[in-house]
Simulated assay, not measured.
Amino acid sequence: MGGLTQDPAFAATTFVVIDFETTTPTGYPAQPIEVAALALRYREGTWKETGRITSLIRPPAFAPVTPADTAQTGLTAEQLAEAPTPEEALGALDRRLTAGTPYLLVAQHAATEANVIHHQSAHCPALARTDLLDTIPLAKHLVPGLFNYRLDTLLARFAIPQPPDRHRAPADVDVTAQLFRKLISAADQSGDFSDLAALVKTAGRTARANKPLQTGLFDV
């Protein structure tokens, strides 16, 4: 590996690959019905998994599971009826984050995960303050010219097998983690990223909780 993975800041960071499945009720933000997260650290030249969590989530009454949701994910209203609430599921995930440890969330099209987390921030305040890395701009930098940068396209490009339960959060986290590791390997080989800061400059996304509040035009 090259300069990126030799950077002390990179080695100190825990990368948490995260994925949500959601419902999309009219007039409301997307509501989570499943979450999975997988924590990775790069140590002594290899990736090590340091934690994993997954949970179904019971949606609120205004966001029922639709036939389209079931067709996409396989999840049904009956499966979710007794699932943990968002407060319970995301609170459990939030408590897995250790104060003082540097984290970055990793997601495919991270804006989607960032918005879900932002709207659930009351249940997961530490998670909501964690910045993100997006695999899409990183892939665009490293593998220019693909006809699109959807997850399925990138899995095929990097010869990552499609999981049988694609569009379930645990399966999507697993393949996104594989993609992330391959992208980091390509980033090291390219020499374009000397350190974590360079990686964040290309693929980073600031958590909405960490963005400065915009004051009014005439505030003094």
Rank of each mutant, 00 (worst) to 15 (best):
P59K: 10
L75P: 04
Q108C: 01
P64S: 06
A63W: 03
I53C: 05
T26S: 14
T85L: 13
L38A: 01
P29G: 03
G51R: 06
A110Y: 02
A39V: 02
T24K: 15
R43L: 09
E88G: 08
E44S: 06
R43F: 00
R96H: 11
P32F: 01
S55C: 08
T46D: 07
A37V: 11
P86M: 11
T46H: 07
D69W: 05
T76P: 10
D7N: 05
P29F: 12
G27L: 12
A9R: 02
E78K: 14
P29S: 04
F20Q: 01
Q79E: 15
P8K: 01
E88D: 14
A61H: 15
V35R: 04
T22M: 09
E87T: 13
E88T: 14
P59W: 07
L80T: 11
G45C: 08
L38D: 10
A99L: 14
A63Q: 08
T76V: 13
A71Q: 15
A114P: 01
V65F: 04
A83M: 08
A83I: 10
V65K: 04
I18G: 03
V16N: 02
D94H: 12
T73S: 09
A89W: 09
Y42V: 01
T101N: 10
R96P: 01
T54L: 05
G51K: 08
G51W: 02
L90N: 09
A11S: 12
I53T: 14
Y103T: 00
A89H: 12
I18M: 06
Q79M: 15
L90W: 07
R96G: 14
A12I: 00
T70L: 06
A61G: 12
G74S: 06
A11C: 09
L93N: 05
T54W: 09
V17M: 11
Q79H: 09
E44K: 05
G27C: 08
T73I: 08
E49G: 03
T26W: 06
L56Y: 13
A11R: 15
A30W: 12
A111G: 09
W47E: 01
E44H: 07
A81P: 11
I33Q: 10
T101F: 02
A81T: 14
S55G: 10
E87Y: 12
T50R: 11
L80I: 12
P64N: 09
E44L: 03
L56K: 15
T73L: 05
Y42Q: 03
I18N: 06
T66M: 11
Q72S: 14
T70P: 07
L56P: 12
G45N: 06
A81N: 13
L40F: 02
S55D: 04
A68G: 09
H109D: 07
D19P: 03
G45Q: 04
A114C: 02
A68E: 15
A89K: 12
L56S: 11
V35C: 04
A83Q: 13
E44C: 02
T23S: 07
L40S: 02
R41K: 12
G51F: 05
E82Q: 15
A81F: 08
L80E: 10
L38H: 14
P67D: 04
I33E: 09
L105S: 00
E113Q: 08
T46Y: 02
P60N: 09
V65M: 04
P32S: 04
T26A: 13
A81W: 09
W47R: 08
Q31K: 15
T112W: 08
T50K: 07
I33P: 11
Q31W: 05
R58H: 13
T13A: 01
